[in-house]
Amino acid sequence: MGKKTLVVENVGMKFNLSQEKVDDFKEYFIRLFKGNLKYNEFWALKDVSFTLEEGDRLGILGLNGAGKSTLLKVIAGVFKPTEGKVTRKGKVVPLLELGAGFDKNYTGRENIYLYGSLLGYSKQFLDKKYDEIVKFSGLGKFIDVPVKNYSSGMRSKLGFSIATIAEPEILILDEVLSVGDANFRKKSEKKIRDMMEGGTTVLFVSHSLPQVERICNKAMILEQGKIVAFGPVEEIAQVYTDMLDKDEDQEIMELKRERRQLLQKIRARREEIKEEKKKQEE
């Protein structure tokens, strides 16, 4: 049992869903006089509680609009939950929309410092890590070019390099494992894997079940803002496929279950082989 890095208690998040957004005076006063300022309330999250420990890798599954992104934003601290509490130990780094915090008139070099300090790294730390960031991003001489002239790939490469320069305690991923070209993707995947092995807690949102099964040890299914299931990834994967296949024929469902079990066996056997090889090498 590791130590708890993330505790989420009874979190609920309420939004006001007004038909049109009221953001000017005229609209506001008209509505005020009509007594029309009531909004439709909508709970994007309700009673969400779970605990993650050091080294846990949680996959968050759910259909569109289930509240996955909202949950990530609450954990990242961007949204303040309407009720409940989130306790985080250590630094949280969200790898969402990489490079969205860049100033486009700034050069890559200047953005390293701006974005770095936004993520809470000190100037001295960034000075020390500067070369490493530039090297990892592979931008070379482009580092002194304003970011507005970057391609979107270059931008996210730089964003990734800055965000992952220190090992955060909690890492938030949003299907981000596809940054830049093939080369960089390999590099970034390796970096994330290193972090996971180093004990970073990972939250991972994905629609792709195989990806979640590959990366995560725990999983959660969200439906209409509530946790439907939470537990070890093997169990949850089963529940999730059953959920998606609700309307399928009984026999097909049986076969799919068998296929899943076989796949799990294959994966387990592969791991064994890997272990054995390691031992032999030693």
Binding site: A76, G77, V78, A100, G101, L119
Partner: peptide
């Protein structure tokens, strides 16, 4: 807003 929507500051 793009920064505010991403990281808590």
């Amino acid at each position: 807003s793009s920064m505010i929507k991403k990281v808590y500051v």
